[in-house]
Computed example of a mutant assay.
Amino acid sequence: MGILMALGGIAPIVAPLAGGAVIEAFGRRGVFWVLAVIAAVVAVTVVVAVPDCLPAERRRTGGAAELGQQLRSVVRDRAYVGYTLAFGVLFCSIAGSPFLLQNVLGLGVGASSVAFSAGAVVATVAGAVSARSVGRVAPELPETLPGA
């Protein structure tokens, strides 16, 4: 998980800087046009180059009833719901950071991009340190804490 976090930290570092450059060059609407082009390229690449990896005999035809049953089993999984809520909080903070940095703290587009990227660098380094230390330090707390 730490390695995934470290690798996933590249986008939050680069994206605000690239987004700030696009906004400076083309305005806020330019970001949506750039994202639309990237999404189209990715969609075409997936359709053309990525084969279906699940064998035909293992595919489900399902329907709405099976979808509902699978959805209920996912929603009952407390660990999954917890991680989903944690990522929701993460994305809320990402979505709210431009408002905080620009409207509350008064930073410009470029400065807020650099500030957000600096935070992403810290998160990426923390993920890398966590990945390196997980072999030496237990990732879970014991059932009962000493002295409790």
Score class of each variant (00 low, 15 high):
Met1Thr: 02
Gly2Tyr: 04
Gly2Met: 03
Gly2Ile: 01
Ile3Met: 01
Leu7Pro: 04
Gly9Ala: 11
Ala11Tyr: 08
Ile13Arg: 05
Val14Asp: 02
Val14Arg: 05
Ala15Thr: 00
Ala15Phe: 01
Pro16His: 13
Leu17His: 00
Ala18His: 00
Ala21Pro: 07
Val22Pro: 11
Ile23Ala: 14
Glu24Gln: 12
Ala25Arg: 07
Ala25Gly: 05
Gly27His: 04
Arg28Gly: 14
Arg29Asp: 13
Gly30His: 12
Gly30Ile: 13
Val31Arg: 00
Phe32Val: 13
Phe32Ile: 15
Trp33Met: 11
Val34Gly: 06
Val34Tyr: 10
Ala36Phe: 09
Val37Glu: 03
Ala40Asp: 05
Val41Cys: 10
Val42His: 06
Val42Lys: 00
Val44Gly: 05
Val44Cys: 09
Thr45Glu: 06
Val47Ser: 14
Ala49Trp: 09
Val50Cys: 14
Pro51Ala: 11
Asp52Arg: 14
Cys53Glu: 13
Cys53His: 15
Cys53Asn: 14
Pro55Glu: 10
Arg59Gln: 03
Arg60Gln: 15
Gly63Glu: 02
Gly63Lys: 07
Ala64Trp: 09
Glu66Asp: 14
Leu67Arg: 07
Gly68Phe: 15
Gln69Tyr: 12
Gln70Tyr: 02
Gln70Glu: 05
Gln70Ser: 02
Leu71Glu: 15
Leu71Ala: 15
Arg72Pro: 13
Ser73Tyr: 15
Ser73Trp: 12
Arg76Lys: 15
Asp77Glu: 15
Ala79Trp: 11
Val81Glu: 14
Gly82Trp: 10
Tyr83Leu: 15
Gly88Arg: 02
Gly88Trp: 09
Cys92Gly: 10
Cys92Trp: 06
Ser93Tyr: 12
Ala95Ser: 12
Gly96Glu: 05
Leu100Asp: 05
Leu100Gly: 03
Leu101Cys: 08
Val104Leu: 11
Val104Lys: 12
Leu105Ile: 06
Gly106Leu: 07
Gly108Cys: 13
Gly108Ile: 12
Gly108Lys: 13
Ala111Leu: 15
Ala111Ile: 15
Ser112Tyr: 13
Ala115Tyr: 13
Ala118Val: 12
Ala118His: 10
Thr124Asn: 01
Val125Tyr: 04
Ala126Asn: 12
Ala126Gly: 11
Val129Lys: 09
Arg132Pro: 00
Arg132Thr: 01
Val134Tyr: 01
Gly135Ser: 04
Gly135Asn: 05
Val137Phe: 02
Val137Met: 04
Ala138Cys: 02
Glu140Gln: 08
Leu141Glu: 09
Pro142His: 03
Glu143Trp: 05
Pro146Tyr: 02
Gly147Asn: 01
Ala148Gln: 00
Ala148Tyr: 00
